Computed example of a mutant assay.
Amino acid sequence: MSSTLERHVVTLGAHRVGEGPAVVISDRMSLREHRGGAREFPREGVTLAEPAGADDLPLIAARARGVVIGAAWTRDIPLVRAVAALGLPVVVERRPSATLEEWLGVAGYCAAEGNDQVILCERSDLGLLRAARAASGRPVLADVSGDIGLCAAAVAAGADGLIVDGLIVDGSQADRREAEEAVTLVGALLRPETPATLPDCRQAIDRVDAALATLLERRVALAGTVQRLKPVGGFAGRDLTRERALVARMAQRAPELGETHLAPIMNAIIEAGLHLAEERATR
Rank of each mutant, 00 (worst) to 15 (best):
R242T: 15
E193M: 12
L198P: 05
A236F: 08
T197L: 05
P195I: 09
D147F: 10
R238V: 05
V183F: 00
L222H: 15
P264W: 03
S145P: 03
L198W: 09
V155W: 00
G161T: 05
L150F: 02
L229H: 09
P231V: 14
G237H: 02
D206Q: 14
M266I: 14
A213H: 07
L240I: 09
R228S: 13
V232E: 11
L198Y: 08
V183A: 07
V155G: 01
P195N: 07
G233Y: 03
L167W: 04
Q173L: 11
H261T: 11
A159S: 07
E217Y: 04
R249W: 07
R253A: 09
G146R: 09
D160Y: 03
G171W: 10
T214C: 13
A254V: 07
G158H: 03
L190K: 00
D175F: 06
A245R: 14
A213R: 10
G234L: 04
A153Q: 14
R242N: 09
V186H: 00
E256Y: 10
P195G: 05
D165N: 09
V164W: 02
E243G: 06
L189I: 07
Q203K: 13
A174Q: 15
A213D: 09
D147R: 13
D170Q: 11
R253N: 07
R219D: 12
T260C: 04
A153L: 09
R253H: 12
V247K: 00
R207A: 13
V155K: 00
A196Y: 03
R242P: 05
G161M: 07
A248W: 04
L262I: 04
L162T: 06
Q203E: 14
L167D: 06
E259P: 03
V226W: 14
R176A: 15
V164Q: 00
V164D: 00
T241W: 08
G237Q: 01
D200L: 10
T194C: 10
A248S: 05
E178N: 07
R249C: 05
L198R: 12
L190C: 01
G224Y: 04
R238F: 01
P192W: 12
Q203G: 10
E256V: 11
R253K: 09
V183Y: 01
A248E: 08
M266F: 10
L212C: 12
L240H: 11
T194K: 13
T241G: 15
I163E: 02
L198D: 06
I168T: 15
G166D: 04
T260Y: 12
L215Y: 04
D175Q: 13
T260M: 07
A179N: 03
A154E: 00
E178H: 13
G146M: 10
G224C: 06
D160Q: 06
P192M: 10
